[in-house]
């Protein structure tokens, strides 16, 4: 394996397009996406290339993978890497986009939102639980409650921001469909 370097992500819920453009820019400079890394990407030194990246969110059952990746391959998009249900593809610049239909793009955004809703739901329960613990006025348990309360708020705020951002994207795509003739 050649030289590698790390590129941080701006957060897929906020700026997926920005991440993909940044990756394309890096590829032009000779740094190709190799795999996902913690909160970002691992790039590998290679020949500069004029390529574009696209991302898709999909949970694939056993036996669905082959067909899914084959369709992309045939359309000129080769699979680079996956992290759970997040898949990144690359293609030569000028290849038709992976989403051609606004309706299915809205579906894509909804698929991204799903796990974040589960996390938000869990955090809300955790928040309520911490309030309950806090209200118990005996020393250490109350202190633990105070601590949980703080943690849940710290985690809830970015989760809610992510959901707002996703809904904004969804609304943008949906309204662009209405206005496009």
């Amino acid at each position: 394996m050649g030289k590698t370097k790390y590129m941080p992500s701006n957060g897929l819920a906020f700026s997926e397009q920005k991440d993909m453009e940044k990756l394309a820019k890096k590829a032009k400079q000779g740094w190709m996406l190799k795999k996902f890394a913690f909160m970002g990407y691992r790039l590998e030194k290679s020949e500069p290339a004029d390529i574009q990246y696209s991302i898709d969110y999909r949970s694939l059952e056993k036996g669905e993978k082959e067909e899914y990746f084959e369709l992309f391959q045939m359309a000129g998009w080769s699979h680079v890497c996956s992290n759970y249900d997040i898949h990144i593809f690359k293609a030569e610049t000028g290849t038709q986009p992976i989403y051609s239909d606004p309706d299915s793009t809205v579906d894509k955004v909804s698929r991204l939102a799903k796990p974040i809703y589960s996390i938000a739901g869990f955090l809300v329960l955790f928040f309520i639980f911490s309030l309950f613990l806090k209200s118990v006025s005996i020393g250490i348990i109350s202190q633990i409650g105070q601590c949980f309360h703080f943690i849940s708020i710290v985690l809830l705020v970015p989760t809610i921001m992510m959901l707002i951002s996703i809904h904004f994207t969804k609304w943008k795509v949906a309204s662009s469909r209405k206005s496009s003739i």
């Binding site: 696209s54 898709d56 999909r58 067909e67 899914y68 369709l71 992309f72 045939m74 359309a75 998009w77 038709q96 986009p97 992976i98 989403y99 051609s100 239909d101 299915s104 793009t105 579906d107 894509k108």
Partner: peptide
């Protein structure tokens, strides 16, 4: 042209 991600979704 139908993109592969749209086709798979549909």
């Amino acid at each position: 042209v139908i993109g592969p991600a749209s086709l798979y979704t549909i």
